[in-house]
Simulated scan of single mutants.
Amino acid sequence: MTVQEPLTLQRVGPLIAFAEVSLNLGRTTILDSVAFQVEPGSIHALVGPNGGGKSSLIKTLLGQMPHQGRLSLQWPGEPGVIGYVPQALEFDRGLPMTVDDFMAAMCQRRPAFLGLSKHYAGAIGQALERVGMQDKRKRRMGALSGGERQRVLLAQGLIPSPQLLVLDEPMSALDEAGIQVFERLLQDWRQAGITVLWIEHDLEAVGRLADRVTGLNRRVLFDGPPRQTLTPERLLTLFSTHPRTNGSAA
Rank of each mutant, 00 (worst) to 15 (best):
residue 186 L to V: 06
residue 104 A to T: 10
residue 1 M to D: 11
residue 99 V to D: 11
residue 232 P to S: 01
residue 154 L to G: 03
residue 53 G to L: 08
residue 72 S to V: 02
residue 62 L to A: 08
residue 242 H to T: 09
residue 183 E to D: 14
residue 133 M to R: 09
residue 156 Q to L: 03
residue 176 E to T: 12
residue 97 M to A: 15
residue 15 L to A: 13
residue 35 A to W: 00
residue 97 M to Y: 08
residue 133 M to W: 10
residue 104 A to Q: 10
residue 95 L to D: 07
residue 177 A to Q: 09
residue 153 L to D: 08
residue 5 E to V: 02
residue 157 G to L: 01
residue 136 K to V: 14
residue 170 P to H: 14
residue 138 K to Q: 15
residue 31 L to F: 11
residue 87 Q to S: 12
residue 108 Q to N: 12
residue 186 L to W: 01
residue 44 H to G: 03
residue 213 V to Y: 07
residue 174 L to W: 04
residue 45 A to E: 08
residue 207 G to V: 01
residue 187 Q to M: 04
residue 169 E to L: 03
residue 71 L to E: 13
residue 15 L to K: 13
residue 31 L to E: 05
residue 207 G to R: 14
residue 191 Q to F: 00
residue 11 R to A: 11
residue 177 A to Y: 08
residue 160 P to T: 03
residue 150 Q to G: 06
residue 17 A to T: 04
residue 145 S to A: 15
residue 237 T to F: 08
residue 44 H to F: 01
residue 29 T to S: 10
residue 51 G to A: 05
residue 121 A to Y: 09
residue 32 D to P: 02
residue 139 R to G: 02
residue 247 G to T: 06
residue 84 Y to I: 07
residue 162 P to S: 01
residue 172 S to R: 05
residue 213 V to A: 15
residue 214 T to F: 13
residue 42 S to P: 04
residue 169 E to Y: 10
residue 135 D to R: 12
residue 221 L to H: 07
residue 155 A to C: 10
residue 195 T to W: 00
residue 231 T to H: 12
residue 246 N to Y: 00
residue 71 L to K: 02
residue 161 S to P: 04
residue 213 V to Q: 10
residue 241 T to K: 07
residue 26 G to N: 09
residue 105 A to P: 02
